[in-house]
Each structure stands twice: as structure tokens, then as C-alpha cells.
Write a protein that binds this DNA or RNA. Sequence first.
DNA 1: AGCGAATGATACCCTGTGAGTATTGATCGC
DNA 2: GCGATCAATACTCACAGGGTATCATTCGCT
Lengths: 309, 309
Amino acid sequence: MELRHLRYFRAIGREEHFGRAAIALRVAQPALTRQIRDLEAELGVELFERLPRGVRLSAAGRAFLDDVEEILSQVDRAADRARRMGSGHLGTIRVGLSEIAAAYDFISRGLLHFREHEPGVALDLRSMGSVLQIAALKEGALDVGIVYDAHIDDRDAEGLERAPLGFGETMLAVHENHPLAARESVTMAELAEQPVLGPARATARGYYDRLMSACIESGNAPHFVQECTTHSILFSLVSVGMGVGLVTTAGSRAPVPNVRLVPIADLGLRFEVLLVWRALDRSAALRRFVEMMVDHASVLPGGGHARAG
Amino acid sequence: MELRHLRYFRAIGREEHFGRAAIALRVAQPALTRQIRDLEAELGVELFERLPRGVRLSAAGRAFLDDVEEILSQVDRAADRARRMGSGHLGTIRVGLSEIAAAYDFISRGLLHFREHEPGVALDLRSMGSVLQIAALKEGALDVGIVYDAHIDDRDAEGLERAPLGFGETMLAVHENHPLAARESVTMAELAEQPVLGPARATARGYYDRLMSACIESGNAPHFVQECTTHSILFSLVSVGMGVGLVTTAGSRAPVPNVRLVPIADLGLRFEVLLVWRALDRSAALRRFVEMMVDHASVLPGGGHARAG
DNA sequence: AGCGAATGATACCCTGTGAGTATTGATCGC
DNA sequence: GCGATCAATACTCACAGGGTATCATTCGCT
């Protein structure tokens, strides 16, 4: 049995007329006679009652017609689904999101934009740290990650592709009652007297190392009193007055009400926010996602970032 | 797209290996390569990722495989259903049952027997009068009827086929306190003094006419005081003492507690209980039903009836 | 009653396509 | 580096499915 049999049978069953079905199918009538004869032989069932003039569906034929209609429409749906999937309009993308990502409006806007323009593609957003994202990407447990460039070392580079989305400036988080809270900017020298909170090397090695290098280069390495594994912990500690914090984030507003962000004049430590994915991944949906994220939150050659139309 | 494509794709998708799939399908491997190439071209989707060594389902291929599995099993189910329907093991038979039928145990037993042996065939039992059954049969609203022969006249005979199932004896229904209740049998002469209940000509013309003819032939036409359209009405009236009733039924027990059935020695009016169906009806389930009913409640050539093994 | 139209079945021919064999190209494992 | 593995390609062949012409039957309209 082939779909041809079913298509022919459906046409004849609907019309209960070989001639009209032949016209609709754009084949000659004898072809239908033969195919239906073969189909009936294979099933061992008379699908049509041969009347003196014309034909009529038998009881078995009527039941079979219902099934065939369902089957053929299911075939169409399956083909359509495969096509949409192949063209990237349908599917699931597993996106790794470290908590820092939420701070960048071009990321959340980009995600929203994609979801609106590709409603068939489910975004499986997974909150996980940058280091974990890289590992998950490599073992195929994640399709795309959003991380700081500092977390990718050269060994990671092979097999992974990346695209810059924007930048994160490293700033000082201070409690609103802190003397430095009202300042336009501060210098590293001013931090020497302060208890400073910083990242944890264990969970963000590359970032930690680059931050430390920059501090040392500035000539005024601060006094770190606490390593924080996440931004939210760091902000919490700053907000209860445990010290000032070195954080890399977007914009000038902290996610906690009573904490202010102050630029550091002589540090100039910038991190790139990257989209990362497997170079071998040929998923059309992924390509579409990357394209849209890059396009939406396009990074200008000069270094800043702006929204594209 | 043909089922061949789907069958090949399913085999390769399950194995993720062209060679083994070719063996399982009993075709040469190049045939698969070509069919899959065509299928992918038609869908515009790469269903398999071509690895340096071997193949792997793509995301679209994996989704398509799920659909294809469903489609192919549905095709099998549809074919199976059509076959079962064609062989009479599946379907629906609309059976007309007049209330008299319930009195004959070979009918209820036959129905039960059929239901047990053909669980795939639904019996759509419809309670309707004999005359209505004949009409419904002719216009295709009913597949088989169970009626007294008296209701079929020669005009009905054409187009309808019949088979005898058993006999109904015409007896006298009397209230248990009635003087005749204890008798072994009565004669028509004895009924002359009685108020008699009989059938209604409007709803059972053939039966009524034959009953009347027999009464007149007996030489003692009784005095009918009431026409009853149904057996249950007649029995009700007898049970409240409105008179004695002439009824045709099976066995010697009335369906109402305080009514007795007494044979009428000199009437000898017997009616055949018939299975009736359209001669042109080629439904296998119907044929199976007729065969089983006749076989089960087989009527012996001598005239009586007995149960067959 | 007879003729023509309608309808599906049959006969016959021909082309396209699907399958087979042999081979290539590429890669992996030892 | 050699042989094994695996899919793709080249080429040939047979047959299945489609087309045209025709038949058999029946129905409708004179």
C-alpha cells in the first residue's frame, strides 16, 4: 500500500465517482480503476459497492475513508512540521542565562523580540553560571550561552563560535549612605582604605583573574574581604553595609534599591557579553536566534552598543 | 511522498544506520540513499546529519520520525480495521426488535451468543413494531428485523430475504382467578361467552387478519371488546380482569405474574418468527449475524424448534 | 423499443522510476 | 599506513503505473 492508493481512494470516496475523481486528481480514469482494484485486493475488502450505474462506498469503505482522511492530513502536518523545523520556525532552543544577563536590557529585549517573531520556537531558558554554560554547550546539553568573554579561554574557543552582544563595565557598588555613593566616579586609590567584595575564583575563574590583573596594574590592589559566588549575594552584602563591591554590569542602576553604582575612573575594565554556540550546530532555529540577537542588540564597530531597527 | 519513503525513513531513523536498515528492509543500501535524498529534497529539510562516519538524526528528523511512526501505525490500524469490517468482525448491525421478541428465549440467547462471539460488532437494538421494521428495512434505516411472518406480504417479499427462527403459538391469556385459568386447554366455543381482547388492526394488519380468519374458520368467532396495540397493554388489561386475550407468544408463561396462558385446542394458529433483511445487503457482519442466529436457534424441519450446539 | 450518454472495467503500449550491482570517497581503528 | 566501514555515485534493467482506445452495461430520453 502506498500513499497514492490512499490519495486516489480519498478522491473517489469523496466523490463516489471515478470520472470526477480522475479529473480532480489529473489522471486518467483507468488508473484509478486499477489502483483501487489493487488496494481492495491487498485489503481483501470491497471498498466500493459496484452499482449498475456508478459506485457507492461500502460500510468498510466508509470507515476506511475516515481513517484515510486522518492519515493524509497527518502526513501533511508532519511534512509541514518538518519543514518548519528545518527552516528554524519551529523547535526548541536551550539558552543558558547567567544572572548577569538579566541586567542587560538588550538581552531581555532580544529574547522578547525573538519570541514574538518566532512563536513556533520555544526558548528553554536555563539559569546557570557562565562556566557551567560552557561545559553544557560542549556536551550538547545547551544550544547557546550568554556569557562574559572572560569565561572563555582558548581551549574553549575550538568547537565554539561566538558573537559579541554588548559590553559590561566594571563599577563600584556602594551603599547609598556610603561616602562614595554621591561621587561621579572614584579611583582605585580611594578603594585601598575600603573593605572590598569581589567575585569568587572558584565559580568565575577567568573573570576573577582578569579583574585581579587589572587591579594590580592600577597600582592600588584593593583589600578583598569576601568572595561572592553570585551578583545577588554581592549586592546583598553591599546593601547591608558589609563593604563596597566590584561588579561588572550594564547601565548605572543596581538591581537593589539602596545600592548605587559608581564608575571607576582608572580601572577601565570592560567585559564583552558574548553569545556562544557550537560551531558544528546546524540547527536553523539556532542560526535564526543568533542572527536576531546580534541584529537586535547590534554592537557598533566603535565599541558601544545600540539598538537596531 | 509515498509510504515507501516513510517506511524507509523509519527504518533508517530507528537504526541511524543505512546498512542495517537496508538489511532489515531487505533492499540494497543505495536504494535507501536515493529515497532519503528524494524525501529530503521534497521536504527541503536535512533529516539526517551526515557525519564523517555514518549518520545521525537531525532535530527535524527526530521530530519527523515521531510523526512517521504514528502515521505508519495508523495506516496499519486502518487497514486492519477495514479488513475486520470486510470480514464481518467489526461494525454495527441495526436490529429491529418488536416487543414480542423478548418473549422468545432463542432470540435473546442468540443475540447474547453473537455479542460474545463477535465483540467487535456492535448490535444496535431498536425497539419498534413489526410493520415499522419492514418499512425501516426497505429504506435502509435498519439492517435486520425480527418479525412474525404475518407482517410480511408478497409486496414486501421482493428485496427482502428471510429465515425462520422459530414459532409462536396463539394462546389464550386469562387472569389467574378466571374459571379457565386452571384448564389444560380451551376451545373456541368456550370463548364465545367471554369478552375477548385482541390485536389492533391498525398496527398489526397482517397478524390481525390471519387471526380473524382463523377465528371465523373455527366457527366460533369471539366477541372482541378491545383492540390492543401492544402485548403489554393486552396483558395489563387481562391482569386487571377486563377479559381474556388472544396472544401469540412463546412458552407457557405470561410476562405478567397473575396471568396464565392456556392453549386453544381448535385454533391451531401458529406464526413463524422470521429474521428479515435486505437481499442486496452485502454486509459481512450482517451475513455473520444471520448465520449465527439461524444456527443457534435452528428450526427443525418437522416444525418445532430446538437449540443447536 | 431504440438510440445516445454515462460509467466503470479491460486491453494494450510506453515511459519513468525504483531497485540491483559495482564502485568511489572518506574516515576510523589497529 | 592498511584494511574495514559506511554512505554516495554511476549505470543498467525490469516493472509498475499511467495513457489511449475500447468494451459492457445501464439509464434516460424520445
